[in-house]
Design a protein around this nucleic acid. Structure first.
Length: 271
DNA sequence: AGTGCGGCCTGTCCGC
DNA sequence: TGCGGACAGGCCGCAC
């Protein structure tokens, strides 16, 4: 499932093919995503030129003069650049054809993703307006988690996965960052010391930055924008490794459900 | 206000 | 080997 590093990798992959390109045609093969794909999408985008491609959290923002296309890949979505005449596959739901002869294709078997349109500032859109800071920017600083977690009883893992607190920390990297910081995923957010909050912040930044460097993870159906497989999975230290030896202390990694999500941790290293 | 859970989907995996 | 069913998983929206 695409996490922030995969979205960032996708963005970097597709951006050069999209910038300054004119959209000649929009095809919606299946409107039924998380929300219905807006019916005016095709007419709004036709003959518009792509001005910018940006990311906010896990949302991709593709702006033209008239407005912005907001994309979310859910958990099985992927974007690829392909020749317009290449045959669409089973779950290729939305396609932007470009004057270059290429097209941007959204594939999303589970259809948890979204394709939305806004004429206004996308950052003021209902889904983006309340998002927390970007984890890799300086606004997510050493004091941020400490300040915002005071009085919160929620498990720290659920807390850092809350997009209103900080965006882009998904299930995989939440487990990895907590392992790196030596913090038990179940610990109440409000009971972490300032120092440990700072360590967790640093771990989140390191884990995400490393994943972006590696080109993102592949779990099941993620593919890069050019279609090749990712390769970061083998570098995960605890995620998906229940029963295997902790890389630090050799204790078996434990799996526990927290907030309805599979969570992995070392019972010895994480307290 | 903070917290937790239901629901949307389908590919994959497991047990029979 | 084939089949059915459980499960994963982001994240909004609702209930408490």
């Amino acid at each position: 499932m695409p996490e922030l590093p995969e979205i960032e990798t996708t963005l970097r992959g597709i951006e050069p093919h999209l910038l300054d390109q004119t959209i000649t045609k929009v095809i919606v093969r299946n409107r039924k995503l998380r929300w219905p794909v807006p019916s005016q999408l095709a007419s709004e985008l036709r003959q518009q030129t792509v001005r910018t491609v940006k990311r906010r959290g896990k949302y991709l923002l593709l702006s033209v003069d008239k407005g912005t296309l907001i994309l979310h890949l859910g958990m099985s979505g992927s974007l690829r650049i392909l020749p317009v005449d290449s045959a669409p596959q089973k779950h290729d739901h939305v396609e932007l054809q470009l004057a270059s002869g290429q097209c941007l294709r959204l594939r999303d078997p589970r259809r948890f993703g979204a394709v939305l349109w806004t004429r206004r500032d996308p950052l003021k859109h209902r889904l983006l307006a309340a998002l927390g800071p970007e984890p890799l920017l300086s606004e997510f600083d050493n004091d941020y988690l400490y300040t915002h977690s005071r009085g919160r009883k929620q498990a720290i893992k659920s807390f850092i996965m809350d997009s209103k607190i900080v965006v882009g920390v998904g299930n995989i990297y939440a487990s990895e960052a907590l392992f790196m910081a030596g913090i038990h995923p179940q610990r109440a957010a409000g009971r972490l010391s300032q120092k440990r909050c700072a360590q967790l912040t640093s771990a989140i930044k390191k884990v995400l930055a490393a994943a972006i460097r590696q080109g993102g993870t592949t779990l099941r159906d993620f593919t890069h924008s050019d279609g090749s497989a990712g390769y970061f999975k083998q570098q995960l230290k605890v995620y998906g490794r229940a029963g295997q030896a902790c890389p630090n202390c050799k204790q078996p990694i434990r799996q526990q459900t927290i907030g309805q999500r599979a969570s992995y941790y070392c019972p010895q290293c994480q307290t």
